[in-house]
């Protein structure tokens, strides 16, 4: 499985007042099993880009290839693409509509024409994957759940289609810290269990640094930077010029290494920072 985006361009309301060039010459590739983090200022075109990857938007020019197949020339059935590429929108809990959680999660698989037994297995498996118990909440109304639970039900609804690519647009936006952590560990679990391509947008630099194999930085409808978290977050100045930042741990470590030159570190996560600090500080053994 792979995704290839070639010279994508998209314009909202072409030829009208309010014409906006949302994407302008965007090209990148995603390889099998990779997790990609997308960062960028609000309005930089992240959501527009994601909607091209499953054929919801048609580019003005340029092409998208999923698994070597061009999905922009009209030769592939859209339902087929949407089964392959699962897209979770921002605030996905607002699309819940069924009477019960189980029925809502079953909506996607049912649209692909699966048998009832298969649907049931999928619903159970995907609810388990997002950390919810089918027997406990399968029959309750999705509207009775907490914010974090609702969001996980909505994500389960996309996972239940067993996509080969999972795309999440700001999956942690507006959640409290514990729900935030749950979503993050859910993404990690999906990556581990399903081994699929994951592409996610986030404004939390720490999450992006911790989860991504590669980061794509969007700015004004173009790709401004692309690389591993280490590469991208070493450009602090450029990032802050784009209204972005670096993970808090990196900020702290920059200050610490400036004050204490004997510590060398380009840590992005707390664990990396701890290891780097331990290397130079020898705490004398206390005997008690």
């Amino acid at each position: 499985m792979s995704i290839e985006v070639k010279d994508l361009r998209y314009v909202y309301s072409p030829g009208l007042p309010g014409e906006t060039v949302a994407l302008d010459g965007v090209s990148f590739e995603v390889h099998d099993g990779e997790t990609i983090g997308i960062i960028g200022h609000t309005g930089s075109g992240k959501s527009t880009l994601l909607q091209h990857l499953n054929g919801l938007l048609k580019p003005a020019s340029g092409d998208v290839y999923v698994d070597g197949q061009c999905i922009t020339d009209g030769s592939v059935k859209l339902v087929e693409i949407r089964r392959k590429v699962g897209l979770v929108f921002q605030y996905p809990e607002y699309q819940l509509f069924e009477e019960t959680v189980a029925k809502d999660v079953a909506f996607g698989p049912r649209n692909t024409g699966l048998s009832e037994e298969k649907i049931e297995t999928r619903v159970k498996a995907s609810l388990a994957l997002v950390g919810l118990n089918y027997d406990e909440i399968g029959d309750s109304s999705p509207f009775e759940l907490s914010g974090g639970q609702k969001r996980r039900v909505a994500i389960a609804g996309v996972i239940a289609m067993e996509p080969s690519v999972l795309i999440l647009d700001e999956p942690t936006a507006g959640l409290d810290p514990s729900a935030h952590r749950e979503i993050l560990s859910m993404i990690e679990l999906i990556r581990e269990k399903m081994g699929i391509i994951i592409i996610f947008v986030s404004h939390n630099m720490a999450d992006v640094a911790a989860l991504s194999d590669r980061i794509i930085v969007m700015d004004g409808g173009k790709i401004a930077m692309e690389g591993t978290p280490q590469e991208v977050f070493s450009h602090e100045k450029e990032l802050s010029a784009m209204g972005l930042g670096v993970p808090p741990v990196r900020e702290i470590m920059t200050k610490i290494t400036a004050a204490l030159p004997e510590i060398e570190s380009n840590a992005l996560t707390a664990d990396e920072a701890a290891t780097d600090i331990k290397k130079v500080i020898n705490i004398p053994k206390r005997d008690n």
Binding site: N54, V79, F89, Y94, Q95, G157
Partner: peptide, 13 residues
């Protein structure tokens, strides 16, 4: 528009 797109992403026709 948003809701239509979201349901289309789940294969709604």
């Amino acid at each position: 528009d948003k809701i239509i797109k979201a349901q289309e992403a789940r294969g709604a026709d």
